[in-house]
């Protein structure tokens, strides 16, 4: 059977070329030096490398004949991923205001739900006990002062 490259392979190749061009152009805005590479020499080198590699990736995908674009995304999987990343971001946004001790058990329970926990009581106990242990360990032993409640 003939091997065919996914459409995304072509897109990735072109994106890398675009990134390389951006880095190469950006490097001209940086200071140059009479001897040595100056501030822009190294990014210029990386930009050229990215353009070459991106072009190779594009060429490989074209050589393998790109399949026509397919948009059959597994919505269930995507939703679960968005929920996971979204819950982490929401946690990070609220963490400086509500503090580690309040936010962490909530995050743990949400994540356990996403990973399909069935034994809820055990999950709740683990979430609370684990949060307390981590909080005490980091603040008392490692002297890392985790965020505290600061709303009032």
């Amino acid at each position: 059977m003939e091997k065919k490259a996914a459409f995304s392979e072509l897109v990735v190749g072109l994106l890398i070329v675009a990134l390389g061009i951006f880095v190469f152009c950006y490097s001209f805005t940086l200071k140059t030096a009479e001897t040595g590479i100056g501030a822009g020499g190294y990014p210029k080198f990386i930009g050229v490398v990215l353009i070459i590699l991106g072009a190779c990736q594009t060429a490989i995908s074209l050589y393998q004949k790109v399949r026509s674009p397919e948009f059959n995304v597994d919505s269930k999987k995507l939703i679960k991923l968005v929920e996971l990343v979204g819950s982490m971001m929401l946690y990070l946004w609220l963490l400086p205001h509500l503090g580690f001790v309040i936010m962490t058990p909530i995050l743990l329970i949400v994540l356990m739900f996403l990973f399909g926990i069935k034994r809820w009581v055990m999950g709740l106990i683990v979430a609370i006990v684990f949060t307390i242990i981590v909080y005490l360990l980091f603040t008392e032993v490692f002297l890392v002062f985790l965020p505290r409640f600061t709303l009032f």
């Binding site: 743990l108 994540l111 356990m112 990973f115 999950g123 683990v126 979430a127 684990f130």
Partner: peptide
């Protein structure tokens, strides 16, 4: 389903 959430928190 308990291990993965714990890893997330430890990473953070």
């Amino acid at each position: 389903n308990i291990l993965m959430p714990i890893i997330v928190v430890l990473c953070m």
